[in-house]
Design a protein around this nucleic acid. Sequence first.
RNA 1: GGCCCCGUAGUUCAAUGGAUAGAACGGAAGUUUCCUAAACUUUAAAUACAGGUUCGAUUCCUGUCGGGGCUACCA
Length: 615
Amino acid sequence: MDRIENLLEDYVKNAFKDIYSADFNDNISAYIQKTRKEFEGDLTINIFNFLKYSKETPDITANKIGGYLTENSNGVIGKFNVIKGFLNLTISNNYWEDYINDFVQNSINKSDNNNNNKKNKVVIEFSSPNTNKPLHLGHIRNNLLGDSVAKILEKAGNEVVKVNLVNDRGIHICKSMLAWKLWGNGETPITSALKGDFLVGKYYIKFDSEYKKQIKELQDQGMDIETAKKEASLIKEAQNMLKKWEEGDNDVRKLWEMMNSWVYEGFNKTYNSLGIEFDNIYKESETYLKGKELVELGLKQNKFYKRDDGAIAVDLSADGLDEKVLLRSDGTSVYITQDLGTAVARHNEYNPDQMIYVVGNEQDYHFQILKLILNKKLEFSWAEYIYHLSYGMVELPEGKMKSREGTVVDADDLIEEMIQTAKQKTLELGKTEGFTEEEAEKLYKQIGLSALKYYILKVDPKKKILFNPAESIDFNGNTGPFIQYTYARINSLLGKGRAAYSYLNDENTSSNVKWNNKVIITEENSSNINKERELIKLVYDYPKILQEAAKEHSPALIANFVYELAKTFNQFYHEFPILKAEENIRNSRLTISISVGHLIKECMGMLGIDVPAKM
RNA sequence: GGCCCCGUAGUUCAAUGGAUAGAACGGAAGUUUCCUAAACUUUAAAUACAGGUUCGAUUCCUGUCGGGGCUACCA
């Protein structure tokens, strides 16, 4: 069905031509907005921008255009009013009714095959954990964001490849290895009854505290702090271990493999409970050599240079940046070395239209450099398509989380806590009557994770999140459980209304059942308080919201939308009888409910959130 | 020091340069013989400060104050 914005494109053009003999060549949709609730109308044209065509006052122009549109829009525009240069258009009920009927007939029961239009291929990297510590709340944001953006892009018609690049080597990994070797007494996840990633993390922290002690001792002996950091025997040992690792030393490699396997086991449990999956998991240990090769090649081509101390570096001063070391003087690689290599490898493997990296904004500088080196120094024009999805840090009331200092909100703990809280609240409300034990446990998990995921994803990715553990996460108001509850309500209505036509259950949506009810908007009054209209308008907004969310890489837009939808439905539910209305009205309202329920499920799905049939 | 980001109700979040700055939690007051009260209704409460651009600024520019990040042969 034609969208109003597209129709208006022509209508307005015609209006200016017929009334003012003016050649209208603005993009009208940029000046159309939703009419604010306190005014009558559905869409508003900001007429101020068009005075150059009319050469008349805003009020006169708006009135003339408004009058023309009501006469020449095939009945789409029912009436209009003008307030202070804003032309408020009321779209006819007919249009809305046709739209929602069309939506139910053609969108809901259709399987997701948006084939004919060519798809962009997007590779999105997220999670990218280090194998020296367990995942914490910051990683949760990263994982949820990456997973959700991937789903949004897919829904918006792109082909998406989710990849995880595990940072399983490097000096930081050697630190926990060394600490375990020195102080671990052979401890394993089994002997200690600790989850593998926690056990390794314990030694990462141990290293840091012992290292700090050494630095302090050296300082007490009169050494300055910078020298002390370099001279401490622990860091030297770790560096030596890294060198041995890169040389393939058997003992070091064996220790490394053992400890990493502990961590992977732990990570998999966490990914599982979050419902996160990848198409491809890369290990830095298997890709970092590509980076080294690339740097060597660049050196030969004089794009990089060797410093007197032996380190290989690149000069970025032409772009207002500093020199950047790409390979240490002992030949080992640094962080950016492997990122350069994997970017090239990934491009060669997938040849994507876009490469997205979901990484915190503390690494803005890193990605600026990465792109610059690839694009300008190595002359890979495709590097233009690298997009750093730079999200804000998750902070605690006392500041940033630091793994080394142990001031983190642990991912596993938080997830478990949310599930327990969900259980407690659900039992208080007596919502699990008639549930089997298994069903109830599933529900607690759905609700607890929903609260957590929605809480994280509703915030604009670019902004930092302040997480206060003491106040914890809500289950009422603008929350995941509220939206789930709305869905369950709708599901219950449909079950009672038309048990045979359970449109919202997966098993049944694929069937060829046709819903033949026509939606009728009741109560033709001042229209902008009619919840039926409001809901249909929200359903109408959805495709634009989805495109916008994909363009902005922002799950928050989906979250805000689905909340608005759920809230409006609850008002509708409260004010309008549905099952008790006379038959054609009842069926009409059930049809609206079907549409809303369908969209709630679809949106929540993009946020990685399950919706329960009953709660 | 240099570079970058951010300051919106008590708190956590909204608002392509547009109309009287929206929600939620918390506060105050209501709604269950009525389709699930994890709901609904009413109410008090905010753009850090000072300039500038504009018909119009929370949004753009400058400065001040406050917070955070980056500036490694850490990742």
